[in-house]
Nucleic acid binder design. Structure first.
Length: 507
RNA sequence: UCCCCGAUAGCUCAACGGUAGAGCGAGCGGCUGUUAACCGCUAGGUUCUAGGUUCGAAUCCUAGUCGGGGAGCCA
């Protein structure tokens, strides 16, 4: 996998590569000076914990952050573990008893007080850290006004409990690590596609087509729920609604992104997606982020190749860029995550037709609760057995019976199957679902008729097949499921900052 | 939405029809270049909600709410 070329912006590491160069008159941000306004935004002039931990002993520094723990020593000093979220680790700030506010403030610091500290980076005398900050001034920015009721105590909490204090949970080791990994993966998603000439298309969040397939939708309306306008037939008159018709939150950007695919060739969506299903599982959210690439002049085999290299790129990025957080997940969440994803990076994914998968499941002799039979969709237990026991790695299943798949999937020559694929991963099951799309208008129309869908509703989608149609393919990837897989986090509600699930929209 | 399990101190749990407890956290004190610190003391409860059974309910019954595991739906 080609790494991002770095030479172009090494000269200015503080500045993202896509921003214009700073004017020569503007001084480059320097650490160790006091905050100032530059007219170009607030300059971050203190040192992040991340940088402080790598700083050379002897340098002066100011750090800011939140107290993780405080330990007093009668030898005349206190140890403050300070975290600012810039990395997994915390900086040990050593506060000598001769600080003017030592007794009045330092000894009263509790978990999650915010402070700033000036001092010198020194080699640590103790074990557990190589450098620490020997403070000569510590200012308390924000107290914890009642430590007894502060919800995140200095102890282990269950994730279920932490969800009830979602506004404070990012201060914990685990949720902080998840947030950094989530960011790294998001950046890697854009980088992967950008490097390969894909364009990010902002497909709409609000959709007027109720024909997106895939499940229950949330209604978007400004109508008065109590006194909704009525049609002559007694139904709600959506002609008087904001958009003049029924609208919902999108369940997929695919249909819309296909239009840009038929112009820009390689495109993708990455944004929030909404499903109003009453799903109560560790793998479902009502609001989640989905990535949907779409490639013109591409068939199912090409689609599968992109899916595989995409996943491997993401795994590699997270191992390279977040070794601190990944070490934590591997130690405390799932002792196999690093081994698992390292292995996957080098292992070709298994490719198997649906028909072969059914045959192998039948031959396995395994007793399943639900029957395995050609024509029926595979159950979770079947998928898990396939990927966890039978082949022990991700499996790309292809060419499913047409009756269990969506109308837009391309019909194969056998007349029985469509060019669909699912990427199944150990532990979390289906991580990607995709297909080659039906580009032949007559075949598409026949499918719409068979499935009793109204052709008129799909007029613009059908137009793509009338005006310069081309074979194309794509897939959808649940972003949170990738984060789950990479971190080993068992519940999808703990890998998104504010989970939306049935009955839960607090925060 | 369906099946199973659960809800007791700030948190994690015990008490299984007869006076509601522990560990951790918190407060105070002691000790210590400490680091999941250690030792002592203290505070902290309308046992999820609403009904019911019983002389007596945290405990048994019914309904609801919320959480977990599994299933369906899917990403």
């Amino acid at each position: 996998m080609a790494r991002r070329p770095r030479a172009t912006f090494e000269a200015a590491p503080d500045r993202p590569p896509d921003q214009p160069p700073a004017p020569a008159t503007m001084p480059a941000p320097r650490a160790f000076s006091s905050p100032r306004h530059t007219g170009k935004g607030f300059a971050m002039s203190w040192l992040s914990v991340k940088d402080a931990l790598q700083a050379a002993p002897g340098s002066r520094a100011t750090v800011k952050g939140w107290v993780r723990t405080r330990r007093d020593s009668k030898a005349g000093l206190s140890f403050i573990n300070l975290s600012d979220g810039s990395c997994f680790g915390a900086l040990q700030v050593v506060a000598p008893a001769d600080l003017s506010n030592y007794e009045s403030e330092i000894q009263k610091l509790t978990t999650s007080c915010s402070i700033e500290a000036d001092g010198e980076i020194v080699a640590s005398q103790g074990k557990g850290q190589s450098v620490e900050l020997k403070a000569d001034a510590i200012r308390v920015i924000g107290w914890v006004d009642d430590p007894d009721t502060y919800p995140i105590a200095q102890k282990r909490h269950t994730f279920e409990y932490l969800r009830e204090v979602a506004h404070l949970r990012p201060r914990t080791n685990t949720i902080g690590a998840v947030a950094r990994v989530r960011h790294t993966l998001a950046m890697a998603v854009h980088r992967f596609f950008h490097e390969r000439g894909y364009f990010w298309i902002h497909t709409p969040i609000i959709t007027g087509s109720d024909c997106e397939g895939a499940g229950q939708m949330f209604r978007v309306s400004t109508l008065d729920l109590v006194n909704a306008p009525r049609t002559n037939e007694g139904g709600v008159d959506f002609a008087q609604d904001f958009f003049g018709k029924e609208t919902h939150l999108t369940v997929s950007g695919q249909l819309n992104v296909e239009t840009y695919c038929m112009a820009l060739s390689k495109v993708y969506t990455f944004g929030p997606t909404f499903r109003a299903e009453n799903s109560n599982t560790s793998r479902h959210l009502a609001e989640f982020w989905m990535i949907e690439p779409e490639m013109a002049f591409c068939d199912l085999a090409g689609d599968a190749d992109v899916a595989e290299s995409f996943l491997k790129y993401l795994f590699k990025a997270v191992l390279e860029e977040r070794p601190d957080d990944m070490a934590f997940f591997n130690e405390h969440i799932d002792k196999t995550v690093i081994e698992t994803i390292t292995h996957l990076i080098d292992t070709p994914f298994e490719r198997m037709t649906y028909t072969d998968a059914v045959a192998r499941l039948e031959k396995s002799g395994e007793k399943f609760e639900y029957p395995v039979q050609w024509g029926l969709d595979l159950q979770s237990e079947h998928e898990r057995f396939l990927t966890e026991k039978l082949v022990k790695k991700p499996v790309i299943l292809m060419n499913y019976p047409k009756d269990i798949k969506a109308f837009y999937m391309r019909q194969n020559d056998d007349g029985k199957t469509v060019a669909a694929m699912d990427v199944l991963a150990p532990k979390i099951g289906e991580i990607i679902g995709g297909s080659q799309r039906e580009e032949r208008l007559d075949v598409l129309d026949r499918r719409l008729d068979e499935m009793k869908l109204n052709k008129a509703d799909y007029w613009w989608y059908r137009d793509l097949r009338r005006y310069g149609t081309a074979p194309h393919a794509g897939f959808g990837l649940g972003f949170e499921r990738v984060i789950q897989f990479v971190t080993g986090m068992a519940n999808i509600r703990d890998v998104i900052p504010f989970p939306r699930t049935p009955g839960n929209s607090e925060f």
